[in-house]
Structures are given as C-alpha cells and as structure tokens.
Design a binder for these strands. Structure first.
Lengths: 195, 195
DNA sequence: GTTTACATGTAATCCGTTACATGATTGA
DNA sequence: TCAATCATGTAACGGATTACATGTAAAC
C-alpha cells in the first residue's frame, strides 16, 4: 500500500525502528544525541509521523504498560514497513536529491547496512557518483557562463558548492573502495559479533 | 515591525528583489535557471511569500499595466525591507544553521555583496569559521565515541559529514583571503585582520 | 490556426514548528 | 518539599508541495 511517498523524516523513522523497536522518546533521543539531528526535529514532528506510519501499516505499535508507569508505545516494523524501507533504500540518487540538499542520499546509505546486499550498495553508490558528476558539470557550466558583473560573492558561493560536491565525489569513491574490501557482504542481516 | 523571523525563502526573495525589482515570474526564473534552485520551489511558494512580505511592509508591489497585457506585480524593497535584509545579513552563523543544512549561511554571504561593509563580511566569515570549528570538534567526538558495533555505513556517513565541514572551513579561509585583497587603495599598506 | 511555451497566479492538502500539557522520578 | 529533568505526548498555526486554472505570445 505505498500510496504516495513518505517524507524523509518518515523514512528515517522506519530506518531507526528497523534497527530495534523504539518508542517515540527513544527516537527523539537518537535525534537529540547523534548527528542524525539533521533529520530530526521536535516531538511535534516525531510522534505524529510514527502514528501516520502505523496507520499506513508500516509500523505496529505495542502498548507497553508493564515496564513503566506511563504506557509507552513501542513501534516495530511490519512486513509492509520492511518492504517500503527496502524499496526506498534501493532508489537511485537523483539530481533533485542533490539540488534539494535533503540529506536523503546519505541517509539511505547509512540505513542500508545489513538490509541491502553489498552489490546493491555498490550499485547505489554508482548512481550517486554519476549524479554527482553530471551535476558538477552543470554547476561548472554555470561558473563559466557567469557574467563578470555577477560579482565576487555569488562566484565564491558557487565555488563553495562545486567544492562540496567534488568532496562528495571523493567520498563516494573512497566509500565504495572500503565496501568492496569488506568480506562477503551481509546478504541478509547478520549478527555482528564485537570483539 | 519585524515581528517574528522570516523563512529562508522569504529572505532569499528579499535579497533577489534587492538586486533589482522583480515580478514573481522573474524570481521564479532565477530559481529555475541558477543554482539558487536550492532555495526555490514552486510558484505556489513564491507568490504567497511575496504577498506576505508586501503585507508586512517589507516589499511594495507596483501594478505594471502598461508593458504587458496581463498586469504584472513588480516588487521592490521598502525601507523596512532594506532594514530586515540588512539585519539578517549580519546574523552570525550558528550551530543550528549547520545542523539544519538550510543553506542560509551561504545565502547570506552571497546576498551580502554591496550591502554590507567589507569588515562586516569578514566578521561574518569569522563567525562561520568558528562555528564550523566548534561543530567539527563535536562531530569528531562522535566519531571517536562511536561504538564499533555501530557498523561501517554510519561511520562512513559521519566521515562524509566531517569531510564536508572541513571543506567548508577551507572555503571560508580562502574566501576571506580573497575578500581581504579586494578594494584596497593602491597606497594602502596591508593591515592584519587575522583572528 | 492550432499547439506550445510563457506568464501569473489560486486551492487543497499536509507536514513541521512552536508552544503547551501532564505525570513520574530524582536531587537539593 | 520544591525544582529540575525525564518521558510522552497534544494543539494551533503557518508555510510548502502538488495540482490545477487561465490568459497571452510565439512557433509551426
């Protein structure tokens, strides 16, 4: 039932809950204490988004009345949620992803671990790379055709954008190389044993 | 009169109209044909935003009935608009600016040309630099304290963020240096503006 | 002479922000 | 005991996206 796409926040929530079932406050804390803050926001966004996902059947809520005085609504992924998340993780990076600066490309990459095969991750990074290369050419075209009268600041601002995407390109290459070097990719989720 | 802050889009509109009076369509075209697309969006955002700014007294609309068959509403900055824009351009870059990735820091820089003194631009870039340095330390702390169990993808995603801000830092330094070299009288000896 | 692109908007829907509400737990 | 903090939300408001509406000029 993926009628209509989800917001970036909703996908971030799917991805977090996929790691382990979480309450709204658990999610809030992740956003408050990690660089995921980029996607976060306020409880006023998180709680309604969780409910929307539950209403759509992508999450299921379990009322946990035992452990706490106040009931906690602990959300977990449903089968449909798994599928929606998985489908999203495999979406290629588009020009719009870059222009909008939504952070979605990196979010997808970060959440892909253990849910997408190594080959699919590499394919995803390839779409990222190609889109970056193409958009970089576009921006460099703008830089070339920028009239001198446009002024120093706009030129510097554009240069900053170009540098940023070039850095992303280097990152993509380096990340792909590191992933290629990993042992047989996690085909399906495999438990990590830490040592 | 500046009750409540404006949205980034609204400031972008103020900045564009400040360059030369523009109609909604003119603005739309700038967004559609330049890297300003980042802040853009649809007519459905632009036109209402222009009206809001007019209602607040920051823009004044002139109905241009002569040049075109259909009347164009051409917007120009009012005195209040000048002041609101100028006040915004001088706001320091905050941590929230970075976390949210709104693009506001660069937008302010790009729009500052000719409206803010060279010294103020350099001071602004200094706030940008300091905020970047501080946020970078925060992110590097996260990287150090990230449990090994967190996995490869989140670590790479964080590394990408750190690299990006480091690139911004280099850009800030280089931009400040270029701006320092501008508009110096031929006889003036260079003074140090370092911090 | 009709399609296509230009130019200027409006309307419905919906998401996110801000601020508030409330109950439990802990520290002074 | 009183305040602060943790934990879990709700409500009002407003801006943005998407889609639609409409009227002119250019192209074919």
């Amino acid at each position: 039932m993926p009628e209509g796409a989800l917001t970036t926040l909703e996908y971030a929530l799917l991805g977090l809950v996929a790691m382990r079932p979480m309450s709204g406050y658990d999610v809030h804390r992740v956003f408050a204490t990690t660089p995921m803050a980029h996607f976060s926001s306020s409880p006023g966004a998180i709680y309604p988004a969780l409910r929307r996902l539950a209403r759509r059947g992508l999450l299921k809520a379990a009322l946990d009345r035992a452990t706490e005085a106040r009931p906690r609504r602990v959300y977990a992924l449903t089968r449909g949620g798994e599928e929606a998340l998985h489908a999203w993780l495999r979406q290629p990076v588009t020009r719009e992803d870059l222009v909008r600066g939504s952070g979605a490309p990196i979010l997808r990459f970060a959440l892909a671990e253990g849910r997408v095969s190594k080959e699919e991750v590499l394919a995803y990074l390839m779409t990222y790379r190609r889109t970056l290369e193409s958009y970089l050419e576009e921006l460099q075209g703008h830089a070339r055709e920028m009239p001198a009268a446009a002024g120093l600041h706009p030129r510097l601002a554009l240069e900053r954008g170009i540098r940023g995407y070039q850095g992303d390109l280097e990152w993509v290459r380096s990340a792909a190389a590191k992933i290629r070097r990993t042992g047989r990719g996690p085909r399906k989720r495999r438990g990590r044993v830490e040592g």
